[in-house]
Structures are given as C-alpha cells and as structure tokens.
Computed example of a mutant assay.
Amino acid sequence: MIKSIRSKQIILIGAIVLLVAFLFTRDIKGLVKPKEEPTAGVPAGGQMPSEAPSINLDEVSTTGKNLLNASLAAEITSLENTFKSASENKKVPAAKLLAQKWDDLEQAVPSALYLEIVATKEPNLNNWLLTGEKFLKAFDNTRDSLLQPVLLQKANSAYTNAVAADSTSADAKTGLGITIVNGMGAPMQGIAMLMDVVKKDPKNLKANMSLGTFAIKSGQFDKAITRFNSIIAIKPSPDAYFYLATAYENLGKNDEAIDAYLESKKLAANATLSKFIDERVTALKTKK
C-alpha cells in the first residue's frame, strides 16, 4: 500500500516538473524529491561539488546569439565591442546595458555574468542582490547538468557578498538560504536561515515560498499546505495555489486539490496550464 502511494507521488511530481519547467515564472523550481531523482551533477547528499566548472562569457554569448535573429545578434555584438573597448570608468554602464539587453531577451546566464562584472567593480548590497537573483534565476531555468553547479556557486557567492555588505538584509539572507538548501552546504543551515527571515518578517513571500517548495520536495506535504495557505492569505498567486494543489493531491485530499488547481488556473490565465489543470481535475473527479 505504502509502495503504491509512493509510486503515485513520484509519477505526479514527475509530471509537475515537466509543467513547471515549461510554464511557470522563473522563480518556481521543479518538485522532484532529492532522494528520488537527484539533480544531475549533484551528489546524493544534495551538496554541489566544491569545484564547479567556470563559465566563459564569450562562449555563453556565442551560444546565446545563435538563438537570436541576425539583427538582434548584431546588436549584442555591437554592445559587446563597446564594452570591450570602453575605458575603465565606462565599463560599468556598458556592462549594465548588456545585462539589461540579455535580460530583455530572456537569457539569464549572460545577463548574470554582466551583472557580476558590475557588482565586482561597484560592490554594494543592491548590485550583489541583483547578481545573486539573476544567477539563481539562471540556475532555476537551466537543465544543463554541467552549468547548474557553477550557476549555484555564483549565486551563493553573490548573496554571501550581499550579506557581508548588509547582514540585516532579508533579501540577502533569503537568497543565501536558498542556495545553501539547493546544494551549497548543509540543507538545514539554509532552512534555519530562511526560518529566521520569516520569524522577523512573517510576510516575506520569497522566504515563505522557498520553505513551502522545500517542504514539498522533502515530502512534508502537511507543512507545505500550512505554508502555502499562509502565502495565499498574504498574496494569492497561481504558483502558490498550484503548489498547494500538489500538496493536497499527494495527501489524497482531492476536493481541496481541485479547488486549489482551479484557483491557479484562474489567476494564471495560461492556455498550457489550463489544459494541464483540466486533465488533473478530471482525473481527480474520477477517483471520487
């Protein structure tokens, strides 16, 4: 019986991973339990290797430009040439322009690398937060097992620098906690950091969302339900309802799951999500 329930959970979570990877905002991570399906490149214990491969900006740029039309690729090349030839006091504005351009094109990796250049040259809380956030977004988006460790390490480094700049910053602590739980250290250390943020700021959505998704990934569905209900009470969102529905479904609370799925569908107003949710709702209704 237990084995059957566990198998059902694995299948359900696998389906959600595919949906989340394709559909939701970049802040949402997949829902694979680490012990069931460890991320490629991450040891079984969940910690990233201490030595991750480096990222070559020129190679990343070339790869990114190959995905663009000729006009946009030429525009990027022109901006890059301006950056490379700029005097030292003009490097930062040129790097900021490239970071924004890559971000506009939904390419987080090169954007993050240019933000890192900005933060290195002008180290302050805001610049390190922007850098960490972009590297974390890139980590969330990529399915490249060789790229994931270095993106997470860079996010961790950026948030570490942000905490050093302001040890009271909730954003810095939240970002650092997320990187630690994802593999940059002992998971409980990261959880403790996030819990400390929530203790001081109960309405901190990012920290609460991270704790909720980590609860789901570790199979603590009751805790996830409590967490996501709290998030929804603060600010309803399609991803919060979606995760809430996932937790309910894994506990066999089908009526509650259906209600949460439908709220997610209504708020997201996305055709792909609507199709997926309609299929889930139909499946759940047949189990009644």
Rank of each mutant, 00 (worst) to 15 (best):
P93Y: 10
A21F: 15
Q153N: 08
L67D: 11
T272V: 15
A108I: 05
K65L: 11
A112L: 00
N250V: 00
A162K: 06
D278R: 03
R227D: 07
L19F: 15
F83Y: 15
D259H: 01
E122W: 00
D27V: 12
E249F: 02
V32S: 12
L267Q: 09
E75M: 07
A268I: 08
L205S: 09
L57K: 14
K3M: 12
E256C: 04
M1H: 13
A155E: 02
A260H: 02
F214Y: 11
F214C: 08
E51T: 12
V60C: 14
A44Q: 08
D239C: 07
F276C: 05
V60K: 11
S237E: 14
Q107C: 03
N229Q: 10
A94P: 05
M195S: 09
S218D: 15
A40Q: 07
T82G: 06
L211P: 01
D104F: 08
L151G: 04
V163G: 06
P38D: 06
D171K: 06
K287S: 13
W128Q: 12
L113Y: 05
N81G: 11
I10R: 14
A224Q: 01
F214Q: 07
P43M: 11
T25W: 14
N229M: 01
A138P: 08
S61P: 02
I16Y: 04
E59L: 13
K285V: 04
L57Q: 14
S85N: 14
A155D: 00
I178V: 14
T63I: 12
V163W: 03
L273M: 14
A44E: 01
Y248S: 02
V163M: 07
L12M: 07
K8I: 12
V109H: 09
K3V: 12
K235T: 07
D104Y: 05
P110W: 01
G46D: 03
A108K: 12
K121C: 05
E263Y: 00
G46E: 02
E36D: 10
K65F: 10
G185D: 04
D171G: 02
L97Q: 13
V118L: 05
D171P: 02
S85A: 14
P149K: 06
S78H: 10
N89F: 10
D104M: 10
L23C: 15
A86Q: 10
N127C: 11
E279D: 15
W128M: 13
P236A: 10
G183M: 04
A271H: 12
A207P: 03
D58T: 15
V32Q: 13
I232W: 02
M195V: 05
K134E: 15
D278M: 05
P123W: 10
I180P: 04
D196A: 11
L68G: 00
N156V: 03
P238H: 04
A94K: 08
N66D: 13
I55N: 01
L12V: 03
G183L: 04
V92F: 07
A40I: 02
S71E: 15
A245P: 01
